[in-house]
Design a protein around this nucleic acid. Sequence first.
DNA 1: GAAACGTGGGC
DNA 2: TGCCCAAGTTT
Length: 308
Amino acid sequence: MRESLRARLILAQKTLLRWHRRNARVFSWRHTIRNPYEVLICETMGQQTQASRIELFLNRFLQVFPTVEILAEAKQSDVIRAWQGLGYNRRALNLHKAAQTIVRLYDAIIPNTEKNLLALPGVGPYTARAILVFAFKKQVSAVDVNVSRVLTRLSKKVKTTSEILATEKVQTINIAILPKRNNREWHEALMDLGATICIKRNPKCSICPLNTLCPSSSLESKKSASAVIKKTSTEKIYFGQPKRIWRGRILAFIASTKKKTFDTICEFTAKEYMLERSDASSICTVVIKELTGEGFITKRADGSYELA
DNA sequence: GAAACGTGGGC
DNA sequence: TGCCCAAGTTT
């Protein structure tokens, strides 16, 4: 990395850390999280989910499952129910399995190495490093989309608002400037700036604390000029919605009360979403088969379905 | 490496 | 209104 670039980034870092002291986003969980288990839950909830939504679920989840042992021993159906409304339900299954792994392999202690964290289901490169940074105060780089966007724009003059460096390059840049003592604050600062000012569309460069140091600070003025080629989604649509939407709806219905027959599920789907009964039946057939195969639900002897 | 995976908010 | 997006991971 060029020394001139590194020098500019270090300057930006000082400025951003100072900005963060007064302008950090206010989330209750930033004050109430007390241990690595809670960081694991919080970071998992945060995957592809707006941080403000964590607030709505984390407290309740931790009240029901206050320790990794309790989560490990919980019924899967209770974990799924506690997750309802957060989306990406597989995260709940993975979290449950991860808790069981931690209890069995690590004596209920959350691992503090990247290797062991990555081996946990649902823990990928970002979450593993985020746990190391936020729970263990380790001197490592955790790169999410905010960190990537901020460091990309700060490192080069980007042409469009969606331009973003490869994660490995961002890693290299961030590792080169990791502060020795304020690494948690540094990552929070990057994420807060990326979530509030250095946002993907219509970045607010005019009020950015780094605008005099940033080669991309002219981005704001040409926000609309940078027409981005939107790649058409290849996701298959079922009766007006992607399949995953139907999966979420049907799983929520099955989770809502006790057992449900196939007919009950079809009737609900048809009525609630104004489908022909035959269309509802076909989407329910597909989705129920998937949810069963993936371990979310089970078919009972009497033919009804319930959470696994 | 592309595609799939939920949900609610912003513009 | 409809599309884009958000503290990514898995296959």
